[in-house]
Design a protein around this nucleic acid. Structure first.
Lengths: 109, 109
DNA sequence: CTCTTCTGCAACCACACAGTTGCATCGTCG
DNA sequence: CGACGATGCAACTGTGTGGTTGCAGAAGAG
């Protein structure tokens, strides 16, 4: 259930999260919605660089945009993270369970 | 407790997981431990490329090595994934909770 | 002992991408 | 209206890195 409108692959999501600057942006957004220009004032990178990162984050559904007058505010979407987290955990658990069963088989030889 | 010998940062972990080939390797390893050469026979990439990927995965603790005679078998460590998953989920939940509280404040104006 | 095969190291190529500068546009405030 | 600040698009640079080939050393298999 909950068909997950857009369902970016786990690797796309991880790829998006595999960048230091992107985390800085997410952290900054965590303290309140902000526009690309506003973020550029707080972070040591250009507005255009931030815009690109925001595009990436938006593509995988980690942020959403809110039009406020002439500026475009960005808001972090935590549920995107949680969804990926659940998927990762499921995979990890499955692997470990498999490993455990193999170990048991080996012990039962 | 369980001091987590190496504690790769979330971004390092995500960076390691942000690669298609690496997931192929993990998937292949999921069906049983294997050496770099063995993996190279199953995947459409060179042994050296696989070796590099395995090094990355090993650095973040997603795989562990097992010496078997002269060859080096690799085994996937699911708990590494689960740990990162928990961290991601915690962050996501915190962000969403913050967002919810802000929304509530706005409604109470 | 010899041949095979598994490993490791190093150099090299090529593409992806983070980051920059520059320009053009458009809304908004004075 | 004019100026400032926000956005968007495009081109360029440079570094990181996924991938390759090549070679040399060790350890089993025959």
């Amino acid at each position: 259930m909950s068909p997950d409108l857009v369902d970016p692959s786990v690797v796309e999501m991880c790829s998006a999260l595999g960048d230091e600057t992107r985390w800085s942006i997410l952290a900054a957004l965590g303290e309140g919605d902000a526009s690309a220009s506003a973020l550029a004032r707080r972070l040591p990178v250009t507005r255009q660089a931030i815009a690109k990162h925001l595009a990436v984050l938006h593509d995988v559904g980690l942020v959403e945009t809110v039009q406020v007058g002439r500026e475009v505010r960005y808001r972090v979407v935590g549920s995107g993270l949680s969804a990926t987290a659940r998927r990762l955990d499921a995979i990890g658990v499955a692997w470990d369970r498999r490993l455990a069963s193999i170990k048991q088989i080996a012990e039962n030889l």
